[in-house]
Amino acid sequence: MIKLAKDNEWLFIDKSGLLINPNSKELKKSILNSNAYKFLENPHNFLDDLEKNKPIT
């Protein structure tokens, strides 16, 4: 995925609209801030926050 993006001069975009250069360091940072990662890290807290209508950041 990173090679394809580099070869075509593409950028990635996260849920906040932040543009991310196609390199593993920046992608890792974005993934660690993602809802998917938060769910995998602690599904109970993530779902509790959703149930309470707490904004997921």
Rank of each mutant, 00 (worst) to 15 (best):
P43C: 07
P43G: 08
L47C: 14
L11P: 00
L47F: 15
N35G: 11
S24E: 13
K38W: 05
T57C: 00
K52C: 01
L4P: 02
F12K: 03
D14I: 07
A5H: 07
L27D: 02
I13W: 01
E51C: 11
L11Y: 10
L11A: 02
L11W: 02
N33H: 12
E41V: 02
K3F: 09
E41A: 06
T57W: 00
K6G: 01
F39C: 05
N21Q: 06
K6Q: 15
K6T: 11
N53T: 07
M1E: 04
D7V: 05
K15V: 06
L40E: 11
N8I: 02
N23P: 09
K3I: 11
D14G: 08
L4F: 14
N45P: 01
I31D: 03
E9K: 15
D49S: 15
N53S: 09
N33M: 06
S30Q: 06
F12P: 03
N45R: 09
I31F: 15
L47M: 14
K6I: 14
A5K: 04
E51V: 10
L11F: 07
K6D: 09
L4V: 10
K54A: 02
N45I: 10
N33P: 00
S34L: 09
D49G: 00
N42I: 11
L47N: 08
H44W: 06
S34G: 12
N8G: 01
S16C: 08
T57R: 03
S34N: 11
P43W: 06
M1N: 07
I31K: 12
K38N: 14
S34E: 08
N53D: 12
D14S: 10
N33S: 12
P55S: 10
N45W: 00
P43T: 06
N33Y: 07
I2H: 02
I13H: 00
K29L: 13
L40A: 09
I13D: 00
E26G: 00
N53C: 08
D48P: 01
D48Q: 08
D49M: 12
G17R: 13
